[in-house]
Deep mutational scan, measured.
Amino acid sequence: RPRTAFTQNQIEVLENVFRVNCYPGIDIREDLAQKLNLEEDRIQIWFQNRRAKLKR
């Protein structure tokens, strides 16, 4: 699968959610997927990668 290119707006929304909860449940991820026009699994991976970035 090709790399997902997130828009600046999508990143802002994801970062705002991350600040509140870095482990969002499936319900939050599915809601975000619908709002941001992305697949839920892409959102899940984004949070996984963002948590890894935080640990660095």
Rank of each mutant, 00 (worst) to 15 (best):
R1N: 15
R1S: 05
R1E: 14
R1G: 05
R1C: 13
R1Y: 15
P2F: 15
P2N: 15
P2V: 15
P2D: 15
R3L: 12
R3G: 14
R3V: 14
R3D: 13
R3I: 15
R3P: 11
R3W: 03
R3F: 15
T4M: 15
T4I: 12
T4Y: 09
T4W: 05
T4S: 09
A5D: 15
A5K: 15
A5G: 13
A5P: 14
A5W: 08
A5Y: 15
A5E: 15
F6I: 11
F6C: 03
F6L: 10
F6P: 00
F6K: 02
F6G: 01
F6T: 01
T7Q: 04
T7G: 06
T7R: 04
T7W: 01
T7F: 02
T7D: 14
T7L: 06
T7I: 05
T7E: 06
T7S: 13
Q8F: 05
Q8M: 09
Q8K: 09
Q8A: 14
Q8H: 06
N9E: 14
N9P: 07
N9L: 12
N9D: 14
Q10N: 04
Q10H: 04
Q10I: 06
Q10R: 03
Q10S: 01
Q10V: 07
Q10M: 12
Q10P: 00
Q10G: 04
I11D: 11
I11S: 02
I11K: 08
I11M: 03
I11R: 05
I11Q: 10
I11N: 13
E12C: 07
E12Q: 14
E12T: 12
E12D: 14
E12I: 03
V13W: 04
V13F: 06
V13T: 10
V13M: 15
V13R: 06
V13D: 02
V13E: 13
V13L: 04
L14A: 00
L14D: 02
L14M: 07
L14G: 01
L14V: 01
E15K: 00
E15Q: 02
E15C: 04
E15F: 00
E15P: 05
N16F: 00
N16I: 00
N16L: 04
N16S: 11
V17F: 04
V17Q: 06
V17S: 07
V17A: 11
V17E: 06
F18W: 08
F18C: 03
F18Y: 10
F18G: 01
F18T: 01
F18N: 00
R19F: 05
R19V: 09
R19C: 06
R19Y: 03
R19M: 04
R19G: 05
R19H: 05
R19T: 12
R19I: 07
V20Y: 03
V20R: 10
V20E: 10
V20F: 15
V20I: 13
V20S: 13
V20W: 05
V20A: 11
N21D: 06
N21G: 08
N21W: 03
N21I: 04
N21T: 09
N21S: 05
N21L: 01
C22N: 14
C22L: 10
C22Y: 12
C22D: 11
C22K: 07
C22A: 11
C22W: 11
Y23E: 12
Y23M: 05
Y23W: 11
Y23N: 13
P24R: 00
P24E: 03
P24K: 14
P24W: 00
G25H: 14
G25Y: 02
G25N: 08
G25Q: 02
I26C: 08
I26T: 07
I26S: 10
I26D: 07
I26N: 14
I26G: 07
D27V: 07
D27P: 10
D27W: 04
D27T: 10
D27A: 08
D27C: 09
I28Q: 09
I28Y: 07
I28A: 10
R29K: 02
R29P: 02
R29F: 08
R29N: 01
R29S: 02
R29H: 00
R29L: 08
R29Y: 07
R29T: 14
E30M: 09
E30W: 12
E30T: 13
E30N: 15
E30V: 09
E30Q: 10
E30K: 14
E30Y: 04
E30F: 12
E30P: 01
E30D: 09
D31A: 10
D31H: 06
D31N: 13
D31P: 03
D31I: 14
D31V: 05
D31Y: 09
L32E: 01
L32T: 05
L32N: 00
L32K: 01
L32I: 06
L32W: 06
L32H: 02
L32F: 02
A33N: 03
A33M: 08
A33V: 06
Q34H: 10
Q34R: 13
Q34K: 10
Q34L: 09
Q34G: 09
Q34N: 08
Q34F: 01
Q34V: 05
K35M: 06
K35R: 08
K35G: 03
L36V: 00
L36G: 01
L36P: 03
L36T: 02
L36R: 00
L36A: 00
N37F: 08
N37A: 07
N37Q: 09
N37P: 11
N37G: 13
N37T: 08
N37V: 04
L38F: 12
L38S: 08
L38G: 00
E39G: 09
E39P: 07
E39T: 12
E39M: 04
E39A: 09
E40R: 09
E40T: 10
E40M: 14
E40H: 07
E40N: 03
E40Y: 04
E40A: 12
E40I: 08
E40Q: 11
D41F: 10
D41V: 10
D41R: 12
D41W: 13
D41H: 11
D41S: 13
D41K: 09
R42I: 13
R42C: 11
R42E: 14
R42S: 13
I43K: 05
I43C: 01
I43G: 00
I43M: 04
I43R: 00
I43L: 04
I43P: 00
I43D: 03
Q44P: 00
Q44V: 09
Q44K: 14
Q44F: 06
Q44H: 15
Q44A: 13
Q44L: 10
Q44Y: 04
I45L: 11
I45E: 13
I45G: 11
I45D: 12
I45Q: 13
W46C: 00
W46F: 04
W46V: 00
W46E: 02
W46Q: 00
W46S: 04
W46K: 00
W46I: 03
F47S: 02
F47R: 00
F47E: 00
F47W: 00
Q48W: 01
Q48L: 04
Q48D: 08
Q48C: 05
Q48F: 03
Q48H: 07
N49R: 07
N49S: 08
N49Y: 02
N49H: 08
N49E: 15
N49D: 12
N49F: 03
N49K: 10
N49T: 11
R50P: 00
R50I: 02
R50T: 08
R50Y: 04
R51K: 04
R51Y: 01
R51D: 14
R51P: 00
R51Q: 05
A52V: 06
A52R: 08
A52W: 05
A52T: 14
A52M: 07
K53C: 05
K53A: 09
K53D: 11
K53L: 11
K53H: 06
K53I: 09
L54F: 15
L54A: 07
L54E: 14
L54N: 14
L54K: 10
L54R: 04
K55W: 04
K55A: 05
K55P: 11
K55H: 07
K55C: 07
K55D: 06
K55R: 06
R56C: 12
